[in-house]
Design a protein around this nucleic acid. Structure first.
Length: 417
DNA sequence: TCTGGGGTCCTAGGACCC
DNA sequence: TCTGGGGTCCTAGGACCC
């Protein structure tokens, strides 16, 4: 459980990608900018004031904000500067939990005699990130992760918000439920239908009705947070439970000539990441999104874990063909996705052995595992030396301009270990 | 608000076992 | 052959987060 002192910090870099661009090119300071082109990946505060936000199409963003300046992303710089900024937290405590490229929690309990109060530490961190890195960062300080996270949101932009333990109930009472971790558009709408719009109201609402409305787990969890009961502590080593890749296709006919190379490319992305970490997974899940945006998923769990590109691609293809067979009216698709889960550590020797698995139903007596593994390894080595694009499983048929830069994909990948 | 990419967790129903 | 009840695993879909 948490102590009675406010020692949790939540540090959150402000409008991160956009701020980095303004740092790299000071002539952009104070101007509405958007990172990206066809799709807005991030917007500066000046652009957000016009309603521009991430995920929005470039055309829509330009409509909302005629003077909007589009800039290409400097993805290497995002990773480097995000790491550098959040590494400053390590100077004050070993208890740091990195949430994403631009966000982290830290618990500074027991370090007061060295660095001052948690609020002092937060102020120091903010000025150091500003001076040493050149970026604005907001920090929330509170007794729990939930309070600290909300506090940093309240502090934005470029501010500090300290929640005194004695004032927690008052602090939460009138804030909108949408500020809470776990309340998205769907939950917010459902709560609003019951007349619940503030965190205080959520805390006081009937627990049974709430469980009925949101399901037992979400109901209990959200009410606990609203009543300021947050048992979570800092987790310093998070490991991924799945690895996936997806590709938006615009609008393509649901034909093998489109599907096969796309799946091959996705399987290759996932497989190379898994192999680099000596991981393999037992469950393969595919998602097919049709042109009307309706999507269908299908999964298969195998006996042994797999990591070979070709094996992942073949299983995925079988699953996708199954989806299409069950939806004969759908003639075109707009997205394909593969995810591999039930990950297990798979040392190389064992991996080669395990990949000799035979899938009785599909390919009786198949013994391609070892040779596939060797082929993948050769590919991985070439890429280590010459880069990812040096060699691979053929170009994918994607409408140019509709796709996202590879740098952004890599950025979105969570460290598998 | 017309849609990018990578993740996490929860739910409900079915299969299967004891 | 009917029946109860619990546990575990799997699948499909949904909501949410950055």
């Amino acid at each position: 459980m948490n102590s009675s002192e406010a020692t949790i910090l939540h540090a959150d870099l402000d409008a991160f990608y956009a701020s980095v661009e303004q740092l790299l090119d000071p002539s952009l300071l104070g101007k509405p900018i958007a990172v990206g082109g066809g799709v807005v990946l991030a917007a500066s505060y000046e652009a957000k004031a016009f309603g521009v936000h991430g995920g929005m199409s470039g055309r829509r963003a330009r409509e909302l904000c005629p003077g909007l300046i589009f800039v290409h992303g400097h993805f290497r710089e995002y990773q480097r500067l995000g790491d550098a900024a959040l590494r400053i937290l390590d100077d004050y405590t070993p208890l740091v939990e990195r949430i994403s490229i631009d966000e982290a929690f830290a618990d500074v309990a027991g370090t007061g005699h060295l660095f001052g109060s948690p609020a002092d530490i937060a102020r120091t961190i903010r000025s150091r990130v500003r001076e040493e890195i050149g970026l604005p960062i907001s920090v929330g300080v509170a007794r729990t992760k939930h309070l600290a996270k909300i506090a940093s949101q309240v502090a934005k932009p470029d501010g500090l918000c300290v929640v005194d333990p004695a004032g927690e109930t008052l602090f939460l009472r009138d804030l909108p439920v949408g500020l809470m971790w776990g309340v998205g558009p769907a939950t917010e709408t459902r709560l609003k239908a019951e007349g619940i719009t503030t965190i205080g109201q959520l805390g006081r609402s009937n627990p049974y009705a709430l469980r009925q409305l949101l399901g037992p787990a979400a109901g209990e969890k959200l009410q606990a947070l609203a009543q300021n009961r947050d048992p979570r502590t800092i987790v310093t080593d998070r490991r991924a439970r799945s690895a996936g890749a997806q590709s938006a296709l615009g609008r393509q006919p649901a034909e093998l000539r489109i599907i096969r190379p796309t799946l091959r490319h996705l399987a290759d992305r996932i497989g190379s990441r898994l192999r680099a970490k000596t991981l393999a997974g037992r469950t393969i899940t595919v998602r097919v999104r049709f042109a009307d945006m309706r999507s269908v998923t299908r999964a298969l769990t195998l006996g042994p874990p797999i990591a070979a590109t070709t094996t992942i691609a073949e299983v995925a293809e079988d699953l996708v063909l199954g989806v299409l067979a069950d939806n004969p009216a759908e003639r075109s698709i707009s997205l394909l996705a593969i995810a591999v889960s039930q990950l297990q550590r798979q040392p190389m020797l064992q991996l080669e052995f395990a990949l000799g698995f035979t899938d009785e139903k599909r390919r009786p007596g198949s013994r391609l595992g070892a040779s596939r593994w060797r082929a993948d390894r050769a590919l991985d080595h070439v890429r280590d030396r010459f880069g990812w694009d040096a060699i691979g499983y053929g170009a994918v048929v994607v409408k140019p301009g509709h796709t996202v830069p590879d740098g952004f994909r890599e950025l979105a990948e969570r460290d598998l270990f």
